[in-house]
Design a binder for these strands. Structure first.
Lengths: 229, 229
DNA sequence: CGGCAATTTGACTATCCTCAACAGGGGTGG
DNA sequence: CCACCCCTGTTGAGGATAGTCAAATTGCCG
């Protein structure tokens, strides 16, 4: 029984339909670093993320990588109805996904317009988010990229320390990043050295604290926001 | 009678349905530089491109612009079923679009699953193209960006000069760019000066010819492809 | 022919990348 | 339990790429 059922595209279905969908899907666990599929392979699978964080990435022939998307629980992965999707999918954390053969999913979707509607809505949203990200890649400086990245992470993963309301902007926020420094670099189109230097600068200026390599505490939210431009 | 009818999402409809869709849409002409809607406004409209080329763009507060998408005839514009889409839409050439109020379109789409299916397929494709573009923005040098841009233009707009087959790679190709130098810069995340310098370099090296500011002739396709990395 | 905007060119600069060395810290085996 | 090792991340020095500012040129349109 799928825990993201009421948030994922499956929420468009009634109990009977859910049963039918479950019949064609199977759960799969992924270890960090394990790939669900690879760049260039024509995707025979689609999937729903149940738990964990995964990256979508492409690279140039000479090995430079760019992460083009990050997916979280309830997000949809893959390219139904079409050919190859041009990017690989790899787990960043322990992850659980619900996998369907594309052929089966295509058929099921065609018979359930409500599911397609939900998927369309999500895809349109994802397209918007991706386009907003392009502005950062193309037009922002390294300090701005880092600041914007941290703010995005607060939004997606942040927990408010203590009892302050979520909208209290000056509240201290703790983040457990699901990314290595290299992966942050690959998201922002920077090198690992530049990412590292920006992190230490933010720490030295008292804007963030870095309890460990995978943790960030936002100390001065306002100044961080100012840095993001 | 819409000339892109058999390529646009409308191709999912039969004659009666087309009539109903036409009843809620109206044609609109745009002059170059004219906007269909603006960044941040919650889009009350959606549209289909009938003729011309339009850009989707966002900018930072201090005026740096990034073009996040370019749409051609038969492409769909706008964000159905949701809120604001975060980018403006502006005509680059004379353009003709078929406009719908979002409310009307949402209702119509919900009643016509085949239309939604077509739209979903297109949106998934657009998402893929956008993600591929991100690799260029994040990881490529100026010479690589320019070369890749020209190759993409050949693909989208190119006409083969003379009688060579389209697959003949060494054929001379003529392009009439729908973009100014500044717009190319805004697409590639560069400055206008850098774009200009790369164009002259390519001309000096005999890889392209520049008959006028809006025209490019590909002289040495292979070397251009090599430049693209 | 003149005026204006777009583009090109030039000189200089800043940012970010590259290459290289060093540090930290988590896990393993002695 | 501790020492060592390896991987990831940090720091430093130097250099290349693309950005900035400024001036000259082009070509389009009246």
């Amino acid at each position: 029984m799928c825990v993201v059922r009421n948030r994922a595209i499956c929420s468009a279905l009634d109990v009977n339909e859910l049963g039918a969908l479950n019949a064609i899907g199977r759960e799969r666990k992924l270890a960090p670093g394990e790939s669900l599929f690879w760049e260039g392979e024509d995707s025979v699978l689609v999937a729903n993320v149940i738990d964990g964080v995964l990256k979508l990435s492409t690279s140039t022939e000479d090995g430079r990588e760019q992460i083009v998307g990050v997916v979280y629980p309830s997000d949809f992965i893959g390219r139904p109805f079409g050919g190859a999707s041009g990017h690989g999918v790899t787990a960043l954390t322990e992850a659980k996904v619900c996998v369907f053969s594309r052929r089966d999913f295509d058929k099921f979707a065609s018979e359930h317009p409500a599911l397609e509607h939900k998927l369309l809505d999500r895809t349109l949203g994802e397209l918007d988010r991706t386009r907003r990200w392009m502005l950062w890649l193309g037009r922002k400086s390294a300090p701005e990229k880092i600041a914007a990245f941290l703010l995005e992470m607060v939004d997606r993963l942040g927990e408010v320390a203590g009892c302050e309301a979520r909208s209290e902007e000056s509240a201290v926020r703790q983040l457990a990043l699901p990314f290595s420094r290299q992966q942050i670099a690959d998201i922002l189109g920077l090198t690992i050295e530049t990412v590292s230097r920006q992190f230490t600068r933010l720490r030295n200026e008292g804007i963030v604290d870095l309890p460990s390599r995978r943790e960030v505490t936002i100390v001065d939210y306002d100044r961080l926001q100012a840095e993001a431009g």
